[in-house]
Amino acid sequence: MTVPPKPTPLLEVEHLTMRFGGLIAVSEVSFTAMDREITAIIGPNGAGKTTVFNCLTGFYTPTVGRLTMHRKPPKTPLYLERLEAYRIAHKARVARTFQNIRLFSGMSVLENMIVAQHNKLMRASGFSLAGLFGLPVYRRAERAAVDLARYWLDRVNLIDVADWQAGNLPYGAQRRLEIARAMCTEPALLCLDEPAAGLNPRESAELSDLLTFIRDEHKIGVLLIEHDMSVVMTISDHVVVLEYGRKISDGTPAEVRVDPAVIRAYLGEEEEETPPEAVQRLAGGA
């Protein structure tokens, strides 16, 4: 077995600042997410985590900052802050999920997975012309798309309900489907916004397995916003801590856990009788 190549930088965030009118949601945040690593962004509510995501995926245009997405040579890096949202997914291959799940809830699970492969299929269907006449080129492409969907549905254990309406799935299954759908775009970087929110412990454990699988087998980078410290501390290779829109810590889970700034952020300045649950978990680690 060959030694796996060292992770290389995948996404470099430099001096990211996002201002809404007078409110500064994110200020001077810089960090690097490596390829084949799981990078977690944590921080108290309102720390600006989702805003960072929205800047990365083009839903907001950052006020200041450079977001460099490296690609496999010979392709040149892309600057995400200059791209339209759909191009970030399409060209820079950054896929994302949402805090409040966004599925095509009236469509079937399989259709959700097929829509995710839209651009590929669109080309194969000759921008619908080959498809309209039912040419074999398109039928082959569609079969391949179904195969990819089947692979991921199998992986997230949704294969039996593939023909259900997505909106009728139980909550945990909807979360898994959203991740599977994002993977169908064959991303280079997968951004997950609180994927463990609302999951029970067993489901959280499964999620951790899925994310490590994605990192190790599909060799892509994962960027993760998460409150569930049991997930973050187990699987992350690298943790970035935000508070009030600023980065206060950056390092391995072990380093971050003992960083006084982080503990202060979670505990608050005054000493409290009982530290919040998150901190207990943070301090306890995994």
Partner: peptide, 25 residues
């Protein structure tokens, strides 16, 4: 056309256009 990528994208758009953008549409 409902069974073609573009038709599916139309329906996806009706369901959730933000998600469509996030999928590169």
């Amino acid at each position: 056309i409902r069974k073609l990528p573009i038709g599916r994208a139309w329906e996806a758009l009706r369901e959730d256009d933000v998600a469509c953008t996030a999928l590169g549409i």
